[in-house]
Amino acid sequence: MTAMLNIKDLRSYYGQVQALHGLSFALNEGSLTTLLGANGAGKTTTLRAICNMVRSTGAIEFDGSSLMGRSTESIVRLGIAHVPQGRGTFTSLTVEENLQLGAISRRDRAGIIADIERMYGYFPVLKERYTQQAGTLSGGEQQMLAVARALMLKPRLMLLDEPSFGLAPLIVRDLFKILGRINREEKVTILVVEQNAQLALELADQAHVIETGRIVMSGGAKEIANNEDVRKSYLGY
């Protein structure tokens, strides 16, 4: 397996405050990786740094070419879809328009129409509501819409920031199943940041643990899940 995304010595700043202190890790093509860490460890910042939404130094390479200094939109156009915290739904637009926006950088009209249908297959509830304003959807529906919108890009890499946030446990299970399917069937590499460590470790094959802006542990998800410290700190048993 080759490294699709390679991050080296990443340091990010919010104004004067440094949030990442030389963070390094790599993502393999086709993997489903989770980033674990306490509140404020720098998980969200890492995702934002990949899309150049926060001032950073260091090296981020995607397919061997550097992402540093590129604008957010041009990074996205390389096939990196980012579902931000809070989902980033276009609340004033309809569900279908949200999906079309996901594919705004694509040119294949027929493909887009087919993909919208495919999304309705994954998330039938979106089809029921396709003319509805996205802001009127429930939290879970909005999260599905956000994932579907990200998939409309036909991404090679998908970054998800706390997809379980604010959702009922049952809905979270469904969502994670679908993420697993997307990873296997569509061969989309996924990097997911999660508070719900247990669920994330069940789903993922790789895991990295962040503490105060650095990677402190990396490995297979099973192996991490069995680690004494991780169990104590993040799984609570």
């Binding site: 919010y14 405050v17 404020g40 720098g42 910042t45 915290q85 105060t212």
Partner: peptide, 9 residues
């Protein structure tokens, strides 16, 4: 670094 700063509007 706290989450609060990450969430600044």
């Amino acid at each position: 670094m706290s989450a609060a700063i990450e969430d600044v509007v």
